[in-house]
């Protein structure tokens, strides 16, 4: 199916439309299964040592977590707006939106770098205790997703370059966008678990 010709719509999607390629939903569902298991494992271990997890949470910098959550949300909004703009055949705006989202992703990685290095300086490593094992491993697995997602966003920008929006296959844009939203929503839950709940 070709996404090139679509009715103009200001709403997000329209009735009966599967965003992106069907296969990406298999990937997204699979990743959600993995992370659901990871979240459950975290809470199960927390139940065994609530004090240790409480102390670990207290050692995290909540402001950095907040900044990163806002960066993720904003990048997701840019991506969704970029797809909406492409659907309305606006030239240049989609690529600009994806570039802005990419910049948010880079900012997220930068904040994570600051956060990790502060932890290492303070002598906190994955081997410190169970909380920091989960903290580093989970945020690390998520960071891999961020890096892959940034590659996907870059791919979308390259795909838009030199192409008229009228001939751009919107389905490709939706596929890439869906992956980036997955990265966003996984972080929302991680933020709650690591920074707020533990």
């Amino acid at each position: 199916m070709s996404g090139a010709v679509r009715p103009d719509t200001t709403r997000a999607g329209f009735a009966g439309h599967v965003p992106g390629e069907a296969g990406i939903w298999l990937f997204i569902a699979g990743d959600m299964v993995l992370f659901s298991v990871l979240f459950a494992v975290f809470l199960t271990h927390r139940a065994e040592a609530p004090d240790l997890f409480g102390a670990g949470r207290a050692a995290l910098d909540p402001r950095l977590g907040l900044v990163n959550t806002l960066l993720m949300l904003t990048s997701s909004w840019f991506v969704a707006t970029g797809v909406a703009a492409a659907r309305r055949r606006r030239p240049r705006i989609p690529a600009a939106c994806f570039a802005a989202a990419l910049a948010c992703g880079a900012g997220f990685a930068g904040v994570k770098y600051l956060e990790y290095s502060a932890k290492f300086t303070a002598g906190l490593t994955p081997m410190t205790d169970d909380f920091f094992m989960f903290y580093f491993v989970y945020t690390g697995i998520h960071m891999i997703h961020v890096v892959i997602g940034m590659g996907v966003l870059y791919g979308l920008i390259a795909y838009l370059r030199g192409r008229d929006i009228a001939v751009v296959n919107l389905q490709h844009l939706e596929t890439g966008a869906s992956f980036w939203h997955l990265v966003d929503l996984l972080w929302i839950v991680l933020f709650a678990l690591l920074y707020l709940v533990a």
Binding site: G13, V18, V83
Partner: peptide, 12 residues
Amino acid sequence: VILDFMEIRHAP
């Protein structure tokens, strides 16, 4: 995020 950013609200 799922319903509006991922556009699942109007999906099948």
